[in-house]
Design a protein around this nucleic acid. Structure first.
Lengths: 225, 225
DNA sequence: GTCTATAGTCGGATAGAC
DNA sequence: GTCTATCCGACTATAGAC
């Protein structure tokens, strides 16, 4: 029995296929990616895709499961922590509103950080593409990470603004998220406009600073405290 | 000679192919779209694609040329007008800064309006996809419409903020654009978060209001006037 | 579990009649 | 300019040996 080994031969194959598929699907898109190219990148046989994952589509879904697990593992501690801290904040208290704003600011950093550090560029590309043309694969990611993150963002926005959660606060959360997202989704556009060779750590730090300034301006203006 | 007729037979065929291709490429993506499906939608023969456009790729580029012409025709008057008004604004004058802010606000409306009214959902989808994975087709659109629009946005931001154009003002312009873009790129996400069935006129009006509020907060805060 | 070989399908391009 | 018919390449999935 090999079942006691941490990594059986099959597990290794599955992993290398998922890793290769992540790169190739991200580079070429689902339809343009060929199982041949994936197998070659993984250094194994093309027929093994059907054996291990049932087919091309199964492999695609497996890529998203694997990705979701990784991102969730890195994101959940942050989200858990935030949710715990939010629990007893009150939007009627000025001090609590300030606390919520501080959490919001750190959330911005975490979001950029997750996109930047924990995921390879390939993963970002896959998620962005699914975001635009969602398939079954997006549900895996959305259900496990995205909805919770955006929900939290919405609650923070409401708290920081001194209001109950509402359609307005959710729109607000999305516009906030959009300020970051455009630098990932529109990487090519952003690079051209900014004259950047890449959208890397240094560049995203500038973005973060700007988004924080925007945020502070919004909540420190003359709303009757 | 038919050359005096406004619409020769061939012109009609080209147009119906472009129109059909716009829909099918938007729905399925370049690779998944088949020339057979496009020809069927256009109600003409598959071989005509090669005859008129040289092939599938040529048709794809033709779609972007046609689209660019339409959008440019609707956007250029607005941009021309804005650029004329900007010409003699000065970022050292408080009145001029207020004027720039007003232009910025109307620009937001125009951007949403162009995306919403002038283009079909299919066109928006095509542009968003190219924005993410740019090919030669994006250059057509970027060079003619996008760069000028974003450039204008950057200048307005700088003027309204009382500063010269700078990397910061360009980032600022992109974060502003991102607040709108997320509702088009992430249509699916936005719908889920907001509980919207679609992202239509009514929904985008709410978005516009929120973006304007964000904008006003930014420029009416305590920056030493 | 992994391999080779191939079946079966589909899509883009082209030749040639009209 | 438009059509039918067809070629040819590329792809996914599968059968079967090891």
């Amino acid at each position: 029995m090999q079942s006691k080994r941490a990594q059986s031969r099959g597990d290794e194959t599955r992993e290398s296929l998922i890793s290769a598929a992540t790169e190739v699907f991200a580079r070429d898109g689902f339809h343009a990616a060929s199982t041949r190219a994936i197998a070659e990148t993984a250094g194994c046989n093309q027929a093994l895709i059907a054996y291990h994952f049932g087919g091309k589509e199964g492999l695609y879904l497996a890529v998203f499961e694997s990705m979701t697990n990784r991102v969730a593992a890195n994101m959940q501690p942050v989200v858990d922590d935030m949710e715990a801290r939010i629990a007893d904040l009150d939007h009627d208290s000025a001090a609590d509103r300030a606390a919520a704003l501080a959490l919001l600011e750190s959330m911005i950093g975490s979001l950029i950080g997750v996109f930047l550090d924990l995921s390879t560029p390939a993963m970002v590309k896959l998620i962005m593409r699914e975001q635009q043309d969602p398939t079954e694969a997006f549900d895996i990611f959305y259900g496990s990470v995205y909805s919770r993150t955006l929900g939290l963002l919405g609650r923070l926005v409401a708290l920081a603004g001194g209001s109950e959660e509402s359609p307005e606060s959710r729109i607000q959360a999305l516009t906030l998220f959009g300020q970051i997202l455009i630098f990932f989704i529109g990487r090519a556009t952003a690079s051209r406009v900014m004259g950047w060779k890449q959208v890397g750590k240094k560049e995203l730090e500038m973005v973060r600073q700007q988004v924080l300034l925007n945020l502070q301006a919004q909540y420190k203006k003359g709303e009757p405290v």
